[in-house]
Simulated assay, not measured.
Amino acid sequence: MQEVYINLGPRSYSIHIGPGLLPRLGEYLRGFPFTRRALLVTNPTVGSLYASVVEAALAGAGFEVIRSEMPDGEEYKILATAEKLYDLAYTRELDRRSPVVALGGGVVGDLAGFVAATYLRGVPFIQVPTTLLAQVDSSVGGKVAVNHPRGKNIIGAFYQPRLVLADLGVLKTLDPREVRAGLAEVIKYGIIADGGFFTWLEENLEDLLALDAEALTHAVAVSCRIKAQVVREDETEQGRRAILNFGHTVGHAVEALTGYAAYRHGEAVAMGMVAAARLAVALDMLKEGEAARIERLIRRAGLPVEMPAGLSPDELLDSMRRDKKVLAGRLTFVLPVAVGRVEIVRDVPEEAVRRLLISAGTKGDPGGGR
């Protein structure tokens, strides 16, 4: 097992990484001043596989477990689902020291965390991520949110968990497509902060796709350490933390315009990373060979690199203008200047983005018509 510590003063917590950790969840919670009633949030797929293990672990530590299953899918990460959890928490008399435990991927973690952040103005939150993407990204750093029909994650908060338990053994039951989607975020960390890690990914990608335990442990731990360092420096995304959004400006627009159902989050981010690398080349910030290297690894991971053909540049640009990173109407992109280093670029010319989207195969002409 490896442990990564997120040093945020009174909001500090540990991420425990390794196989076979689910049955030990109760042990990890014994030292916290929680009351003995816990809300376990999961979905039917994950719940059928692992909820009984987690319930037994919590019961063994003296918790009364209140289990709730939300429908599976990004389209259910909405206020209406959160309201059902509020109702359950209220009727079962959860108090301000009753923990909310998220057992699932990013959707479950984001929604359960949003509920924890807002119910009674904040109750303890525990992350038990069961997808690779959640283990390396969404469970770490304290971003919790629900979606709105007009945009992804625009209703949310910064709210740190008390503990993250990443059991690598559960990844063996993942759909291979979900594994590839998680690798998009792993690749992101190499591009934004660690060229040596990117090289390691190039050399060990097949082992990761095969879920080799040693390779997975290394990849998850390095990813979490990179994110921990960035979050420690800028917890509420006033500056450097925005580099974690590499690939997300375009990726979130694709997700929103396709109803959060056509693509996994990691797949949309993969498209966005390739688009950002191509935009950086067009703006003379990145060498073509470096962009090709990024695109090649993403392709090898079995991830999409081209934009959906059915979306127009106008639709995508309009969605990007509503992105959380936009300030005073200026488009903001995280763009690579080399493998291992990125810059936050504000006021990116819309025409350069439009040309990129047209060259990427989206439906439109230079004037933006359909």
Rank of each mutant, 00 (worst) to 15 (best):
L316V: 15
L327I: 15
R296G: 08
R299C: 04
R299V: 08
P313Q: 09
R300I: 00
A328M: 06
E315C: 02
L303S: 04
E306K: 12
R322K: 14
D323G: 10
P304W: 10
M307W: 07
A301S: 06
R299A: 09
D314S: 14
D318F: 08
D314C: 07
S312K: 12
L331E: 11
E315W: 05
E306N: 12
L317S: 03
S319T: 02
R321Y: 09
E315K: 12
K324M: 12
A309R: 15
G310Q: 07
M307D: 08
V326P: 07
M320I: 14
R296F: 03
P313M: 09
A328Y: 14
L327V: 15
L303C: 00
R321L: 14
A301T: 01
P313H: 08
R296S: 14
A309I: 03
P308W: 09
I294D: 05
M320G: 06
A301M: 02
R330F: 13
P304Y: 11
G302Q: 08
D314A: 14
A301E: 03
L303D: 01
E295I: 10
A301Q: 04
K324Y: 12
R299I: 05
S319C: 11
S312A: 13
P308A: 11
P304E: 09
E295Y: 09
L331D: 13
E295Q: 13
R322A: 15
I294F: 01
K325W: 07
M320N: 06
M307H: 09
R296N: 13
L316G: 04
L317K: 03
E306F: 11
V326C: 14
D323I: 10
K324V: 13
V326I: 13
A301P: 04
L316H: 03
L316I: 15
A328W: 10
R293P: 02
P308F: 08
L311S: 04
G310M: 00
R299N: 03
E315N: 04
L317H: 01
S319Y: 02
R299H: 01
I298D: 11
A328E: 15
R293Q: 10
D318H: 13
I294R: 01
G329Q: 03
L317V: 07
P308C: 11
I294V: 14
R293G: 06
D318R: 15
S319G: 01
E295K: 11
A301G: 01
A328C: 03
R322C: 13
R322G: 13
M307S: 09
D314H: 10
P304K: 10
V305C: 09
R330G: 07
E306P: 00
E306Y: 08
R296D: 13
G310H: 07
R300M: 03
D318V: 06
A301C: 06
I294K: 05
L311D: 04
S312G: 13
L317G: 02
S312R: 13
L327S: 14
D314R: 15
V305S: 10
V326D: 06
L316S: 00
R322D: 12
R321W: 03
S312W: 12
E295S: 10
R321N: 00
M307T: 08
K324L: 11
K324G: 09
D318P: 01
L311H: 01
